[in-house]
Computed example of a mutant assay.
Amino acid sequence: MREHPRDPRAAVIEERIASRPQGSWFTDPDPLKAEGDVRAVIDAARAQGAMPVLVTYAVHHRDCSGHSTGDLTAYHDWIEGFARGI
C-alpha cells in the first residue's frame, strides 16, 4: 500500500485486510513497554466495543532451538508488566 498508494486496488485490499480479526503480538522484552503497549490495545478495543486478542510472544524459552533464551526472573518481570497493562 505505502509503495503503491495510487494503485486502484488499494482500497479493496486494505478493506479486506482490515476486516480480518488480528491478534496483537507483544515481543518487546521491556516490562514497562509491554505494560504500555497492552494498555493501549485494551483501551483501543474498549473504545470500539471490541474484544482484543493478546499474544504473549516474549515467553521465556519459547522454542526448542535456543533462540529465545533469557532468565526466568526477567520473564516474570515482563509478564507482570503485561498483566498490569490488562
Rank of each mutant, 00 (worst) to 15 (best):
T27G: 14
R46Y: 11
V59E: 10
A34R: 04
D63W: 06
G23D: 03
G70D: 06
A58E: 05
P29S: 06
A50T: 09
H4E: 02
S19I: 00
T69W: 13
W25Y: 10
S68N: 12
I79S: 06
T73K: 13
I79V: 15
F26Q: 01
L32K: 15
P31M: 05
F26N: 02
R20P: 00
H67I: 05
I17N: 05
Q48E: 12
A74N: 14
D30N: 15
H67P: 01
L54T: 01
D37E: 15
D63H: 10
S24C: 07
W78L: 01
E35Q: 15
R62C: 05
Y57M: 07
P21E: 02
D7F: 07
W78F: 08
A44G: 07
R6T: 07
S24G: 03
A10Q: 12
A44T: 12
M1H: 13
A44Y: 09
H61T: 06
P8Y: 10
D71S: 07
A10G: 05
C64I: 12
R9K: 06
S24R: 06
E15I: 01
D30I: 09
H61G: 00
D7T: 01
F26L: 02
D30L: 09
R16A: 04
P52F: 00
S19Y: 02
F26Y: 08
P52Q: 00
V12T: 13
H61C: 02
